[in-house]
Design a protein around this nucleic acid. Sequence first.
DNA 1: ATAATATATGTGCATATACATAAGGTATGG
DNA 2: CCATACCTTATGTATATGCACATATATTAT
Lengths: 158, 158
Amino acid sequence: MENGLGAPSKLATQAAEVCLCFHARKASRAITQVFDRILAPTGLKATQLSLLMVVSAREPMRIGDLADALVSDSTTVSRTIKPLIRAGLIQGSIDSEDRRVKIINLSHSGHATLERALPLWQEAQSHIAKRLGGTIVQHLLPALESAAKLGSTDERKQ
Amino acid sequence: MENGLGAPSKLATQAAEVCLCFHARKASRAITQVFDRILAPTGLKATQLSLLMVVSAREPMRIGDLADALVSDSTTVSRTIKPLIRAGLIQGSIDSEDRRVKIINLSHSGHATLERALPLWQEAQSHIAKRLGGTIVQHLLPALESAAKLGSTDERKQ
DNA sequence: ATAATATATGTGCATATACATAAGGTATGG
DNA sequence: CCATACCTTATGTATATGCACATATATTAT
């Protein structure tokens, strides 16, 4: 009653249909694919452009600040900035006040690359907004923002 | 006017605030973190449970079917099932009709593990639904479903 | 029947993600 | 002053993700 023949678990089937994690990840993959395709001429991936945008808005930042802003682990940020540092778009320097801290800034080149990428970002954003329709987008953005807060409000460490 | 001193690009700052890709990925990370934490006792990650749920609902499947269902690349699926095959939860066999095709099924153990994980899945799902509130969830799920369709409807191959 | 073409999956490479843990630096109590 | 606890970032390991390309198989055109 399990393999090939029997009916699939009804609960499992329903779970797949409403799972918030599954749907969030699927949607996130689809949206990222569109952004990556449109951003390809810039040499940036969608994830990297997001990083540049956040740093640009809030520099100077620490690794930990960035991790909080991205709802990501600081070990992840420590690595995801590496390709951008290697590419000369981001520079990291040790804080002279507290030498544990690495201070993150955009370089000249980083600012320039960001500005050059923004028109294509706008194109991707509009492309998706048009396909989804204004109503869905207006519901989606605030809902995503609420969901992103789950990490911080949640009893993460307990 | 760019580094450390000057004001950040206003457009870049606004872009970060409304970027659908950034917010989708951030929300997806936050939700995945909650699921992963609650699912930890099962030994499954949220991504892996999703995979089991989809296969359970639609087995037997091909790699390509799975990729379509997940809005993922087939090369990605080809790899993401490997830990599950190694763990004995999924089995893949070559289709005798068309030997290019690999047929994916859940094993006994895969079905059992899935059933054992569903209560914790339910707990994670309810946990998040409660925190978000019914209104947001009711808007979020259909919006995510629309967004997931971007990949397929889009002029992906153009 | 054989060559050209199309399709399904796998590999090489690069990035993204997170947990456990280590390494280095700071702060603090004795 | 030093031992210890704490904080910040990096590393080891494992999985997730996708593009370019390779491989194997099937289909189609000549």
